[in-house]
């Protein structure tokens, strides 16, 4: 009589059951499993501990592990929900789910607000907005005088800060995004729609049928 030996699949620390992750996010089980392939690739690129460190995140984003970027730092910090300096698989999947084309716009609006609320005050304030504009100019070839940067910040505030109290609150942000939908463009990653095509190798190892 024959027997079938099934070798248990080894997972890295922080691994979570794809069935549970799929139930909590916009992804299917197959998509979560495909994301695990991407996660493994990123999380083993420098420090092979199965967690994404900031240098590995920067390497995946910029092909350079030392590139400092305010916005990449903010995204990393928001992905790192447990605030322990690394991104584990569950955090990776839950955060990327916000960028899924089928995820509710309100979730995307709220994530973008938290991204831009640099000092976690619950508001986007003029000095934060100016700091972000300067950071963007620093990473691009665009050169603008301080006066022009100030005008851009003032004009944006005049449009977004409807209550005129000198800060943008979540409701004002929502209204501003509805009027300027292009601001949410980078909150949607079309790649996530066909993640199983991008990482087909998971299909051979899949432990669960959708």
């Amino acid at each position: 009589m024959g027997c079938v030996c099934v070798k248990p699949v080894k997972h890295t620390p922080g691994y979570e059951d794809p069935v549970i992750l799929a139930s909590e996010t916009t992804f299917t089980v197959s998509e979560v499993e495909a994301l695990y392939e991407l996660f493994k690739k990123i999380s083993h690129s420098i420090i092979k501990d199965g967690l994404i460190h900031k240098e590995e995140f920067q390497l995946a984003l910029f092909r350079n592990s030392n590139k400092k970027n305010l916005f990449a730092d903010r995204v990393f910090d928001l992905f790192d929900a447990k605030r322990n300096g690394v991104i584990d698989f569950g955090e990776f999947v839950r955060s990327l789910s916000i960028f899924h084309p089928d995820t509710e716009k309100t979730e995307k609006i709220s994530f973008a607000f938290r991204l831009y609320d640099l000092r976690h005050t619950g508001f986007i304030e003029p000095d934060e907005l100016k700091e972000m504009v300067l950071a963007l100019l620093n990473e691009s070839d665009l050169c603008l005088s301080d006066d022009v940067v100030q005008q851009i910040v003032d004009k944006t505030f005049a449009e977004a800060d409807k209550k005129g109290d000198g800060k943008i609150d979540p409701d004002e942000w929502k209204e501003f995004v509805v009027q300027n939908p292009s601001l949410l463009k980078n909150m949607t990653l079309p790649y996530l729609k066909d993640i199983t095509m991008a990482f087909p190798s998971f299909v051979m190892k899949s432990e669960v049928n959708d």
């Binding site: 984003l61 970027n69 990449a72 907005l129 950071a135 963007l136 004009k155 944006t156 501003f176």
Partner: peptide
Amino acid sequence: RPAAMNAFELISTSQGLNLGSLFEK
């Protein structure tokens, strides 16, 4: 006219916010 730009529009072009690069091989 740069002063007519929307600050958030400008910021959203940051490479650090382009998570699509995570999926590029």
